[in-house]
Design a protein around this nucleic acid. Structure first.
Length: 467
RNA sequence: UCCAGAGUAGCUCAAUGGUAGAGCAUGCGACUGUUAAUCGCAGGGUUGAAGGUUCGAGUCCUUCCUCUGGAGCCA
């Protein structure tokens, strides 16, 4: 049975015979011949305490040599615990070591404190620690909550491609996908690489966003979303960026920017509510050991309404606070992109709640965002949250072909590259909107973890893909 | 990519230019049910790499590598 069921007394009672399988967290010996073995199996935060009496036939040969990381099977009786840390424990009648740790002296994750930096170098074993097993369960819970929310609200999950033939997704540097022999590249007559001989007969890359593809499904299925890995070959070395990360991108038809903002707010609150309800054990750990404010932050988040504010208004308020003597490193001026420090001031100090900033200057935003009537701004939005800054970026999409074409031209983009995207505006176009949410940043916000590399099992960053 | 900091025992860190140490972990021992157990003993080092200065370099200089934090890019 699982440790979770045992500790919750689910389908089991004191006096029952049980069998546990898992890994040793610690072994403590007491007087001559009695050991306490903490066993974890991933089913919940707490390990189970297995009491190994000295009378076990393999006690001196095997049990006292169990060390952190060994795998084992324990059979025994559920008893009320005489100790303080747990209500029930298993009094073992048989302990079977399955896989020993060959050299405890060099086991990379012994029972002691480790820095996250060190554990990143032991990514294959770090999930055996409290922090990373808790994170794995929280990650699963939130991913599951994402799918449940959309399913219950009539959205379809669309599997947009990982390999893309569009070189026009426009969200950053891409990883090339090629089956060509790098040591012996085929050349065109003019000396360039001849991609017509490559696997797909053209240049292909890993996707940086499923948005363009999901828009096509939106204009037939009305409410859709993607949730999968995306790839950016940017040389970003920060605690908030990965080369491979998971992104959630809903897209809704017959919808404007206000509806998009409403969806973002309802969605975020819903998944965090699910997390608080379903992973209280792991969240208690994050609260206690990682970030003392994370529970309070989430509880406030699911109750507070998001402030909505136009970019132009935000600039006015930033200019006012600067005039009142507040110092920023970067100047504030209409038309500029907000810096991290500006976003954080708005959401943390000025409003004190999540803020949806809307209607940005067109010159700092992407070609597909819908032009507003003022001719200066586009229907874009960013959701800013205290403690992390931007967590969502979204927009109403430009559904008018003539306006879209004008924007493509203005930004020196080739209309031919966007032929199928433009078709969507020729055949039954509708106003539609969507946003992108970085899943790892959501996890950081929820748990208070400081680095995005510690919320994904095997992080990919510049110069690092060791596992 | 830019700015700053760091790299010494398995891990976390000390060490004024002059004999490389501690805590934790690990092993052994002690301890009447432990909970980050406690106490004692022990083993454990090419000080990131290559050059240079010096009687002498973990320490100073140069170059490089790696990591961390911040910025930019963004999610």
């Amino acid at each position: 049975m699982s440790v979770a069921d045992l500790l919750a007394l689910e389908g089991v009672a004191v006096g029952d015979k049980v069998r546990l399988q898992g890994w040793v967290r610690t072994r403590r010996d007491s007087k001559a011949g009695l050991s306490f073995v903490q066993v974890h199996d991933g089913s919940c935060f707490d390990p189970a305490q297995v009491v190994a009496p000295g009378e076990l036939e393999n006690y001196t040969d095997a049990v006292v040599h169990l060390t952190t990381g060994c795998s084992m099977i324990a059979e025994g009786t559920v008893v009320a615990s005489e100790g303080k840390g747990q209500s029930v424990e298993v009094l073992a009648s048989r302990i079977e070591p399955v896989g020993m740790v060959e050299d405890p002296d060099t086991y990379p994750v012994p029972a002691k404190r480790h820095t996250f930096e060190y554990l990143r170098e032991q990514a294959h074993l770090r999930v055996r620690t409290n922090s990373f097993s808790a994170m794995a369960r929280v990650r699963h819970c939130l991913a599951n909550a994402v799918h449940r929310y959309f399913h219950e609200h009539g959205f379809y999950w669309v599997h947009t491609p990982i390999i893309t033939g569009s070189d026009c997704e426009g969200a950053g540097e891409m990883f090339r996908v090629s089956a060509l022999d790098l040591e012996n590249l085929p050349r065109t007559e003019s000396g360039g690489i001849d991609y017509s001989q490559d696997f797909f007969g053209k240049e292909t890359n890993l996707t940086v966003s499923g948005q363009l593809n999901v828009e096509s499904y939106c204009l037939a299925l009305s409410k859709v979303y993607t949730f999968g890995p995306t790839f950016r070959a940017e040389n970003s070395n920060t605690s908030r960026h990965l080369a491979e990360f998971w992104m959630i991108e809903p897209e809704i038809a017959f919808a404007d920017l206000a509806a998009d903002a409403d969806l973002a707010e309802d969605f975020l609150k819903s998944i965090f509510r699910t997390l608080l309800n379903e992973r209280a054990d792991d969240m208690e750990f994050f609260q206690k050991r990682i970030d003392k404010t994370c529970l309070e932050r989430l509880e406030k988040f699911v109750d507070a309404s998001f402030e909505r504010m136009d970019y132009t208004e935000a600039i006015a308020r930033l200019e006012k606070v600067v005039a009142d003597g507040h110092k920023f490193e970067f100047p504030v001026k209409w038309g500029m992109d907000l810096q991290s420090e500006h976003e954080r001031w708005l959401t943390e100090e000025h409003i004190g709640r999540p803020v949806v900033l809307m209607n940005y200057p067109k010159d700092i935003k992407a070609f597909y965002m819908r032009m507003n009537d003022d001719g200066k701004t586009v229907a874009a939005m960013d959701v800013l949250v205290p403690g992390i800054g931007e967590i969502i970026g979204g927009s109403q999409r430009e559904e008018r072909l003539d306006v879209l074409d004008a924007r493509l031209e203005e930004m020196n983009l080739d209309k031919a590259d966007y032929w199928w995207y433009r078709d969507l505006r020729k055949y039954g176009t509708v106003p539609h909107a969507g946003f992108g949410l970085g899943f790892e940043r959501t996890l950081i916000y929820a748990t208070g973890m400081a680095n995005v590399r510690d919320v994904i099992p095997f992080p990919r960053t510049p110069r690092s893909a060791a596992f």
